[in-house]
Structure formats: structure tokens, C-alpha cells
Lab assay of single mutants.
Amino acid sequence: MASQGTKRSYEQMETDGERQNATEIRASVGKMIDGIGRFYIQMCTELKLSDYEGRLIQNSLTIERMVLSAFDERRNKYLEEHPSAGKDPKKTGGPIYKRVDRKWMRELVLYDKEEIRRIWRQANNGDDATAGLTHMMIWHSNLNDTTYQRTRALVRTGMDPRMCSLMQGSTLPRRSGAAGAAVKGVGTMVMELIRMIKRGINDRNFWRGENGRKTRSAYERMCNILKGKFQTAAQRAMMDQVRESRNPGNAEIEDLIFLARSALILRGSVAHKSCLPACVYGPAVASGYDFEKEGYSLVGIDPFKLLQNSQVYSLIRPNENPAHKSQLVWMACNSAAFEDLRVLSFIRGTKVSPRGKLSTRGVQIASNENMDAMESSTLELRSRYWAIRTRSGGNTNQQRASAGQISVQPAFSVQRNLPFDKPTIMAAFTGNTEGRTSDMRAEIIRMMEGAKPEEMSFQGRGVFELSDERAANPIVPSFDMSNEGSYFFGDNAEEYDN
């Protein structure tokens, strides 16, 4: 993207840094990872977990959730003011799984939030270390993106479920800051804005008074975040219109849905970061690795190297396929839920299948599930090659597409044709070009129609051997075009429920 120079890199967003050079960025990201790792080690000690239990991804998720809940100030305040039966607002906890007599047992633990905050700050040299908290939120978000298709949420806001490739980060909490905003897809931002506008339509006082002023500035800020994701002048001009509207209503909703559809071809720039579970960072720190000293990046080879040398386990339900569970977590670790499966298959070195073909449910185990038949197995999170994460949407291309997802959002900077089903997408653009945004709409449609099938995206960008740390010898991959490109292809993934 041309304006790259004016933006802070995501590592800076990730670490609240002012302008830093590459070495400083690597050190501050490393410091953040160190903090998460030290916190995780301490929690495993508190909970008396064995090494194996500490490497269980379900335990990692519970521990991450506990610290996120302990620092969720708004919710904590709300819980104190609106006490609900049987919930102690000062405590947080969740299921911890232990191996007892050759069987997995679930144990519900409860801790004072104050105590968890103390352990977290102690692991982070006394700081609140917001960057580390956001990092864990993005890992949870990436896992949700890989596990669930947001059909219901899309339909509720009037969008087409086939636009799911635009929904990265749709389950990120509001408090995820600049680093969170960077990884949100165009569809996620559109959905947040539509929800806001709908509230304004239904509630006369939404934009009024002292609160209304705050609401208005939040609305304009979200519009600017979305505008910054678009790469064409016409899309940005249309966002200006939406932002400046005196009284946002149905016309703005129409414009936003139009823009979301246009992003299936004229893709937005959305950041991709490899955020790993805390149970990967903990053992690495415990083994003596100093992330701050060595430096770390979320968008280069580092996460690949770390996963190459990590042992992570997962509980497996009786009829689940461990290899499929591994694929789910591998995609989440690489922030690749909406990437082209052919690119992923090449990088991973084994075939990556669409969601609907995987015999696996989510990673988390519900409290009512029976533990008797639970097994555990090693997650295979290694890769054959590594590639640089991208934040450009890439230019655009036609490809055989599917009944489910009709476009992709690249996660890796790797040369390819970008699949999208042009006739299906263009069919949504018939007729409606009147109104105050008509010239911009016409211009956007013209650009979409001009998108050429034979153009290559990320020209000359390749993948790298894991021994090639400096990215000196790019390998331009070859793809098996007979395979499906979309992950949520004609899909039956479970729906995400809060």
C-alpha cells in the first residue's frame, strides 16, 4: 500500500510504541512475548500442572481467558453494579484439565481477579502490559475465525453469508486497541457500523446529549479505520460520505453494504499476525530463551520457528480426527482463516481442507461434555516452508469459486491468482447506482469489472525454506488448481455463540 510509510507498523501498534527502528520493534515485541511466557509459567505453578498438562491447549485457553477477564475493567465495573446470582464479580476462573488415573478430569478453578492481575503485572515488570493482553485477544479471535462461520451475524446486519472472507476479527472485544483495529476485516468494521446506525434509528437519543457526542466521535473513528483499509480513492470518498452524514440511517447502511461487497474484489488491507497460545510461549521462556534479547516478529519467520520446536497437546472428542484438529489450530496460529487453501497447503506441506470436510468441533470443551471418553493427542503445528504475512489485500483475480465463501483475504505475501467468483459478486451490483453516491458507485463498479483474471497478485513473492531466515531465496510455489480455494466452501461450520 502506498501510504505504508505514514502508518505505524503493526509491531508498533502491538507494543504501543512511538516510531521505533526494526531492532527496537523486535525487542519490544519480544518483551511482550516474554511477559506472556513468564505469566503462563507462574500460572502453571499456581495450578500445580504437570509439564504435559501445561502444554494442553484447553488449559492455555482457560488461563488466557482468566487474565483477560481480570483486566476487563468495563465488564468488571458492570458486574459490580449489576450483581447477578451466583456470579462473584471479583473472581474469575474456568475449567482446568488434569490427568488422573490414566483419565482426563475437569476441575473448575476460581481465583481472585486481583490475584491474577498481581501475577500478570509481576510477570511483566510491574506494568499492565496491555500489548500482551491484546495479543491474547487476537489469538482467540484468530481461533474463532478458523472455527466458526459468522453466517447468522452477517444475515442479521443485512449482509450476504458468502462475504465471510471479510469477517476477520469479528469476535475481537471493543477494547483491543490499535492492534485489534489493524486485524479487523472490512466486513467486521461494516458490521460494527451498521449495528451502531441501527441503534440510532431505533433509539432517538442515541446521537443526542453528552453521551451522543461520545457516540458520534466513536462512529467517526470507526469510519476512519474502515476508510484506511480501502485502497481505492472511490471507496475512500464513499467512506467520507458515510462519516460526514448528519443523521446516519438506511442510506448509510446501503452504502456500507455496497462497500463491503466491493471489497470482495477491490480488497481492503487487513493486517495478519501470528499470535500463538500462551502454552507455546511459556515452555520456550522456561527453556531459557530470551525473546527480548533475541527479538521477535509476528509477521516473519519467528512464529514458524517457534511452532517448529513446540509440543502442544489437545483434548480430542471420541469421533474427532486429531489431524483435522491440528489443521484448525495451525490455521489459527498463522492467522489464515480466509487465505486461499492452495497457498496454505503449499506452505504447510500437507493438504489443507475446507472447514466442512474437517471432523472436528471447536477447541474448547463445553462444561456439560462427558470427560470419560476424552483422549488427548499432539497437535501437528509444523510447516514445510515459511512466508511473510501481508497486510495488503493483493490485486484481484477471477477463479472458480464456491457456493460458500466467494473470495479470499490473503494472509501471506505469496504470488498467486486470487480466487473470487466474479459473476456471483457482480450480480449483486445491478441497477442500484442512484442517489448521492452514484458517481462513486459507478466508478467502483467500473474498477471491479476491469479486474483481470490473468493478473498475478504479489508478483514474484515466494515462500522460503525454514533454514532461509533472511528470506534470501524465494520459492514461487505451484498450486494444484483442481483443489478448492475457499475454506468455508459450501460450508456447515458451527455458528459462533458468545
Rank of each mutant, 00 (worst) to 15 (best):
V352T: 07
R74C: 02
F464V: 02
M426L: 15
E449R: 06
P173G: 06
R156V: 11
G180I: 06
N492I: 03
S84V: 03
Q311W: 01
M43W: 03
R213Y: 10
S367P: 00
S376L: 04
L298R: 12
V186Y: 08
D101G: 08
P354R: 13
R461A: 14
L133V: 11
L418M: 15
R348E: 07
L108C: 07
I25Q: 15
R213A: 04
E220F: 09
F458E: 02
L61K: 02
F464T: 08
Q58V: 06
N432Q: 14
L315I: 14
N205L: 04
K273R: 06
E252R: 07
L418I: 13
E434G: 03
S438I: 00
Q459M: 09
I33D: 02
N432V: 10
Y487G: 00
Y52A: 15
T350A: 15
Q42V: 06
L256Y: 01
S467H: 13
Q12N: 14
C333I: 07
E210L: 14
S467K: 14
A70G: 15
N76R: 02
S407W: 07
M105T: 10
E81G: 11
Y78E: 11
E443W: 03
A182E: 01
V343M: 11
V67H: 10
S413W: 10
F458T: 02
G288K: 10
V67Y: 11
T62L: 04
E252T: 00
I388F: 01
E252V: 08
V414A: 08
K98H: 13
S438A: 14
V183W: 00
V186P: 06
V270W: 02
S269W: 10
R361N: 07
C44W: 11
E64K: 05
V183I: 15
Q231K: 15
Y385A: 04
A278S: 12
G394Q: 07
R150D: 09
R175G: 02
L166P: 02
T437S: 15
N21W: 03
G132H: 09
R236C: 07
A85L: 09
I257A: 05
T350W: 14
F479L: 11
T45K: 07
L154Q: 01
S28E: 00
G37M: 10
G300N: 09
N211H: 00
N247W: 03
E380D: 12
N368H: 10
S310N: 07
L306G: 03
E339T: 04
Y148V: 07
Y496D: 06
D491W: 11
D72L: 06
I96G: 02
Q405V: 00
A263R: 01
T215P: 04
D439K: 01
M43H: 13
R361Y: 06
K98S: 13
K293Q: 11
A263D: 03
G169H: 12
M189A: 06
Q311T: 15
L344V: 08
L133T: 03
D101I: 11
Y97Q: 13
Y281N: 07
I201V: 15
G169S: 05
F291L: 12
Q20E: 01
K325D: 06
V463W: 00
G180Y: 05
A373L: 09
D372H: 07
D240R: 04
A336M: 03
P477G: 00
A27C: 01
I475Q: 01
N144K: 08
T92F: 12
T130H: 14
W330N: 04
D101N: 13
Q231A: 08
S413A: 07
M167D: 05
R389Q: 01
D439M: 01
N483R: 00
F304Y: 08
D439R: 04
K229A: 09
A178K: 10
M159Q: 07
I406W: 06
D72P: 02
S245W: 02
A403I: 04
G180W: 10
E80C: 09
P277A: 11
I406D: 06
E64V: 04
F258S: 01
L256R: 06
M456W: 14
D372L: 08
M447Q: 14
M159S: 05
S165L: 05
L418S: 02
N498K: 15
R384L: 04
S482P: 00
N417K: 14
A131R: 00
R317N: 07
P423F: 00
R102N: 04
R118A: 11
A471M: 01
G288V: 04
N202S: 07
G200T: 13
G187P: 12
D88I: 10
N498G: 08
M238R: 02
L172K: 06
R342E: 07
A472L: 01
K305M: 08
H135Q: 13
V329T: 04
Q235P: 12
S287R: 15
I365Y: 02
A403F: 04
S269K: 07
I57K: 07
V155N: 06
P89Y: 08
G431R: 06
S297I: 07
R391G: 09
E114Y: 13
L133H: 01
T62I: 00
K198V: 08
S383H: 02
K452I: 13
Q168W: 01
F39A: 15
C164G: 02
N395W: 00
N417E: 00
L47G: 13
R236W: 07
E11Q: 09
L166S: 13
H272V: 03
E465K: 01
T157Q: 09
A179K: 13
T92H: 10
R75V: 05
A403H: 12
R384S: 11
M105H: 12
N319C: 09
I347H: 06
G86A: 13
A373Y: 04
P318Q: 12
Q399F: 03
N250A: 13
L172D: 00
R243T: 02
E455Y: 05
E380M: 08
N473R: 15
Y10T: 09
P453E: 01
F479T: 09
P474K: 01
C223A: 15
V67A: 14
V463D: 00
Q409M: 07
K229L: 05
R117C: 14
P173C: 07
S50D: 05
N417P: 12
I25F: 00
I138A: 11
C223D: 09
I225C: 10
A131H: 14
M331G: 04
V299C: 05
I201S: 07
R216Y: 09
K422R: 15
D160Q: 10
R38A: 09
P453S: 11
C279W: 09
R199L: 02
R342D: 03
G126W: 07
S377D: 01
F291M: 11
A387I: 00
N142H: 11
M191W: 10
M159N: 05
G37Q: 05
A387R: 03
S376I: 04
S165D: 04
E244T: 03
L133A: 10
C333L: 04
L226A: 07
M32P: 07
D372F: 11
A471T: 09
F291K: 13
N211C: 12
M66I: 12
G249S: 06
Y40I: 06
D203K: 14
T62W: 04
E494G: 06
V352H: 02
H135V: 03
M426N: 11
R118V: 11
N334A: 06
A284D: 01
V343A: 11
V343L: 15
A451M: 06
I425M: 06
G37L: 09
F429K: 00
Y289A: 13
E24T: 10
G212P: 06
R102W: 15
F420V: 14
H140V: 09
W330A: 06
E484S: 03
S50G: 15
K357A: 08
Y313G: 11
N397F: 14
W120Q: 09
A337H: 03
F420C: 07
P303I: 06
S141L: 03
R26F: 12
I347D: 04
I253L: 13
G17Y: 00
R221Q: 08
T360A: 11
S50V: 05
A233K: 02
I225T: 08
A237T: 11
A22H: 09
G169D: 03
S392K: 11
L264C: 07
K90G: 07
D16R: 13
R102L: 14
G30F: 13
R118P: 08
Y111C: 01
R441N: 09
A178F: 00
S482K: 07
S359I: 13
S413N: 10
T378K: 14
E434V: 12
G158L: 13
E484C: 00
D112A: 09
V329L: 14
S274W: 09
I265R: 00
G349S: 11
R221C: 06
R162M: 05
Q20V: 01
S60D: 05
E18N: 10
I445P: 03
P474S: 04
Y296V: 03
R470I: 00
E24L: 06
I365M: 12
G460S: 14
Y385H: 05
